[in-house]
Every structure is written in structure tokens, then in C-alpha cells.
């Protein structure tokens, strides 16, 4: 508990810190090594058909202070919610009297590398599902528990805990299963569709302008390898669909529902764009 308060206080202090007038410059030349022994891949060769020359983690676009927080598990404020996730993993819930651990045992073994391969094709629902939806599937079908509400603290914590078991594993999704390719296509289309009164697409900011400042924000490639991500601004974990909705809202557009077809398609496509980057969950961003 004491740790929690200290970490939250650090986060708040950092948000108030003003770095002064933004200076030009793309990604930094720096290496992300967590706890002195996990060498993270923050630069990767793009998969075939990718529009950029190099795939870069959002970590390379953050300030030194923010980057440092991610290099140490004890300083990473997102780890507190990951610990909540560990507790939920072992907590019995629902009419079947089971916890996640009843079926999957020790997450460090059973979940190692799993988070790096989502979204995945789900034959039953005939659509791709992400970790959040897989957890809901287990809860409703195996545990006799209710699906979580979107962005419930438990949903973010458990998703982050599962993904954290892949820390360092390169993102690699399987587009050969089911209809994944047509969802990739739909996501590709959404990525280049200009929305809102400001008339901007994901590509306007993250493809054409990554490395540039947009007012105080240093634009990255908008990769999702760090989600759920700890945002210093919000002092909490932020889910990937929350981030997508925020970016769409910023174009002054109506934003789609979480887990809707268009956001699932976008998650498939954007995850593919980050192929080869290490899973960083919980990444730390501003």
C-alpha cells in the first residue's frame, strides 16, 4: 500500500513537470533493458507490406524521465495494477466456483508468450478476439461469472497481468487463421480513413508525422505493444480501445463502441503494424 502511494505521487509529480519548448527530433537512440536483464526489442524490421522502413516502439518517443520509469519493475507505476491482476487470477468468481488458476494453473508458465499473439481468430464467434474478450469468454463459459464492463478496473488489471507474462516476447499475430485477413483489410481501411471535423486519419499523425511534435505531444508510430499502458496523465492503466477512442475523438468525430467490429479490425491491423516489437505491458507513457 505504501508503495502504491509513493508511485502514484511520483506519477503526479512527473505530469506537472514541464519540459519547456519542444525541440525537434524523432525517436531517441536508446536501449530499453528492464531490471538490468530483459533486453527489449524497440526497433524491428517491418513485416512484408508495411509502409514504414522501421517499426519503432512508442517508448523511443518519450522523455528520459518517462523512459526511465519503464526500466525498473519497482518504479513502473503500472505494476501495481498488474499485482491486482495477479490477485484476481487466483480469486474464485461465478457459479462454477472457479478462478483462472483452477484451469490455467501458474500464469507464469501457462500464459508465457500468450499475450504476444492476440488478437486471435475465434471460431465460435467468427471474429477476432483480444485478451479482454478472451477473459470474458472464460468468465461466462467456464466460470459462470459475468463479462466485465468495458474498462472495469478488474478488466484492465487482469488483461495487463496476462500480457505482462509475455514481457519481452515479440508481437506476432497469426493472419492465416479463419477470416483474419479480411479483418486486417477492414482495419487497414479504417487506419487511412479521415474522420471528424479536423479531417485526420491515424496515418495523418502516426505515419506521416511520427517524430514531429503536435503542440506538446511527440507523435510516435502509435503501436500497441505496450497495452494496457500506464498513462501518467491519467495515473492509471489505459486499454487499447480507450486509446483508439481518444484519438478518434480528438479528430472531433463520434467514436465507435469498445470491441465493435471497426475497433477490433483496427486492433488487428495496428497490432500487425507493430510486429516484432517486444510486448512492454505495462508500458509507461505520458
Amino acid at each position: 500500500m505504501k508503495n502504491k502511494i509513493i508511485a502514484k505521487a511520483t506519477a503526479v509529480a512527473l505530469t506537472v513537470f514541464v519540459p519547456g519548448i519542444a525541440i525537434a527530433g524523432g525517436p531517441v537512440d536508446d536501449e530499453l533493458i528492464i531490471d538490468g536483464d530483459i533486453n527489449m526489442i524497440t526497433r524491428a524490421a517491418p513485416p512484408e507490406g508495411h509502409p514504414l522502413d522501421e517499426v519503432l516502439s512508442g517508448w523511443l518517443y518519450r522523455t528520459e524521465e518517462t523512459r526511465m520509469l519503464e526500466t525498473d519493475t519497482f518504479e513502473n507505476p503500472g505494476m501495481l495494477e498488474v499485482e491486482d491482476g495477479a490477485e484476481l487470477w487466483n480469486t474464485v468468481d461465478g457459479s462454477a466456483g472457479k478462478s483462472c488458476a483452477s484451469c490455467h494453473g501458474d500464469a507464469e508458465e501457462s500464459m508465457a508468450g500468450v499475450g504476444a499473439s492476440f488478437p486471435k481468430w475465434d471460431e465460435a464467434s467468427k471474429r477476432p478476439i483480444n485478451v479482454e474478450l478472451q477473459i470474458d469468454k472464460c468468465r461466462t463459459e467456464e466460470m459462470g461469472a459475468k463479462a466485465y464492463k468495458f474498462d472495469a478496473p478488474e478488466q484492465k488489471a487482469l488483461t495487463a497481468y496476462v500480457k505482462n507474462q509475455s514481457l519481452g516476447t515479440p508481437v506476432a499475430i497469426n493472419l492465416d487463421e479463419g477470416d483474419m485477413r479480411s479483418w486486417w483489410e477492414k482495419g487497414n481501411e479504417a487506419y487511412y480513413t479521415r474522420t471528424g471535423q479536423l479531417n485526420l486519419s491515424c496515418a495523418s499523425c502516426h505515419e506521416q508525422n511520427n517524430g514531429n511534435y503536435i503542440r506538446a505531444d511527440h507523435l510516435s508510430q502509435g503501436n500497441v505493444n505496450g497495452f494496457p499502458t500506464y498513462r501518467l496523465k491519467q495515473a492509471a492503466l489505459v486499454s487499447v480501445h480507450n486509446r483508439f477512442r481518444g484519438c478518434i475523438r480528438d479528430t472531433r468525430a463520434e467514436y465507435p463502441a469498445a470491441f465493435s467490429d471497426v475497433l477490433m479490425a483496427l486492433e488487428v491491423y495496428v497490432t500487425w503494424r507493430g510486429t516484432g516489437l517486444s510486448v512492454e505491458t505495462p508500458a509507461v507513457r505520458q
Binding site: R194, T195, G196, Q197, L198, N199, L200, T251, R252, E254
Partner: peptide, 14 residues
Amino acid sequence: PGFYSLNVGADVRK
């Protein structure tokens, strides 16, 4: 963006 134009993107906020 076009600041005095109705040539805008999809799904403009209502």
C-alpha cells in the same frame, strides 16, 4: 484542416 469548409471527415461529432 479546412477552417471554413464543410469538406470534412467521416462521422463528424453530432
